[in-house]
Write a protein that binds this DNA or RNA. Sequence first.
DNA 1: ACAATTGTGAAAAATTTATCACAAGTGAAC
DNA 2: GTTCACTTGTGATAAATTTTTCACAATTGT
Lengths: 290, 290
Amino acid sequence: MSGDMLTISDRIQQKLDDLTRAERQLALSILENYPASGLGPLTALAKDADVSVPTVARMVQKLGYKGYPEFQAELREELRAKAKDPIAKHDTWAEAAPSEHMLNRFTDAVIGNIRHTLGQIDPAAFDAACGLVGDPARHLYIVGGRITHTLAEYLFLHMQVIRPNLTHVQSTSNSWPHYLLNAKKGDVFIIFDVRRYENNTLKLAEMAHARGAEIILFTDQWRSPVHQLATHSFSSRIVVPSAWDSAATTMLLVETMIGSVQNLHWDETKARMEELEDMFDQTRLFRKFT
Amino acid sequence: MSGDMLTISDRIQQKLDDLTRAERQLALSILENYPASGLGPLTALAKDADVSVPTVARMVQKLGYKGYPEFQAELREELRAKAKDPIAKHDTWAEAAPSEHMLNRFTDAVIGNIRHTLGQIDPAAFDAACGLVGDPARHLYIVGGRITHTLAEYLFLHMQVIRPNLTHVQSTSNSWPHYLLNAKKGDVFIIFDVRRYENNTLKLAEMAHARGAEIILFTDQWRSPVHQLATHSFSSRIVVPSAWDSAATTMLLVETMIGSVQNLHWDETKARMEELEDMFDQTRLFRKFT
DNA sequence: ACAATTGTGAAAAATTTATCACAAGTGAAC
DNA sequence: GTTCACTTGTGATAAATTTTTCACAATTGT
């Protein structure tokens, strides 16, 4: 064998720390669609990664190759070896781990959940729900339970940037009745309720419903009793090889909703985002881009 | 796309009959270890197939390409495409919606993120990290930032059931220095930090590191500066068609970790879970299973 | 303000590709 | 056995492309 067991991908990741900003950007670009981009001409790679030609030349040498052609040669060798290798099992996600490894079993389950969930979703209902959520004239209440309040808050944090006039309610807190005092007809409640379904959440939903509010429910495949009150319900499959349920699929739906709603009033959202950025800059809460 | 669906491999096999002896010999050599050999220089390919250089040049044109570089470019494109969607392509996810619908675009992106992320994860590091997290002798601190504290809390809520001796710290709060007073050598910090990377989080990590604690970092593909202090880092790809990033992949990793750690001491975990169930029953917080 | 990083534009060096003319080889037909 | 049409390799060369390197300016973080 000409080389060691390390793939170039491994080697790049190992060296990632020793690389400078532009070089890292280049490295990630190589990994992004590996190994195709590294097999083209140097200039194309540079343009692809949005770095200059010398940067590529410099990094390749930093990685220990005499020049770009040598680097490419090893990439090809690797590709050749991989194709030859009978263990080209493409059904595992973490290729370095056996398929029985938790990483692969879990990922399998989650992908399956996503497939199943998306297959059953009604796009029209989803769009309608996004329309409700994006309407700034309606006050938006986001409600989560013991575990799901984390998802609720995730949604809340993003919605806060997209639109005004919203509240995060934790149904397990005993202060939620106060919020409902202000709820009025036409307001929107996004409610998260997965097993085990919470009594408080149901009561809250009933009162919201009684006041004429629209309810959008995120639940699991067995559907929280809240769904009878809901204008739109979205059920995720949540089974994983664990004693607990998976929130990953629900998270996907939530993020999709964020993405959709943001598009409804993109101009305003953009303005709000920029304003937020400015404020962050002033508080120096975040690091400058390195 | 301008090109047809045929791979170069297909195209070669189709034309195999129209080719002359030397050309066929060349063609078979290309297919022999495909596509690696076609990606090297023309001369190498000629030598490999034991034909002359003009033969290669002639055949490439016979196949319909303007020249060898064009042939190579298509090979690379093919490789790129193949790496991109080993699983997708067949069906849209939300079948009732067009593939341009946000539901499908978003899901595509997240599935791609998962695949990419899992492909780069080191299972040994993951197992080692789970070992640290599952060790009840070490105090466990879970740290999140402005957005990521939701993930942190999700992890915290589950870990709370699995093991004692843990704390949820929000790095954006200004009370976190108090927690660090108690941190000692061997303790474990699980830190979430994705862009934009937060100064507070970095400071916290530095102090934890100075006290000899082990740091496990969940970050994005650009990697928070905290990773230099971390014992184990796990980077998720987080790009989605939205103005924000996706936490879904990180969520998957977190849940997998929960699943793995729970297995390490399943007996105790089970006992704790049952105890928790009892307490919930007494508080009548949840609905009885219907 | 300083040091390190990075891009620019350009030019030189190296490699690769494309062609050419011609000789050698092949096999089928007569 | 000879001829003929066709294929292939050789060696050389021109053209094109790619790689490498340079000095210097712009940028960035400290």
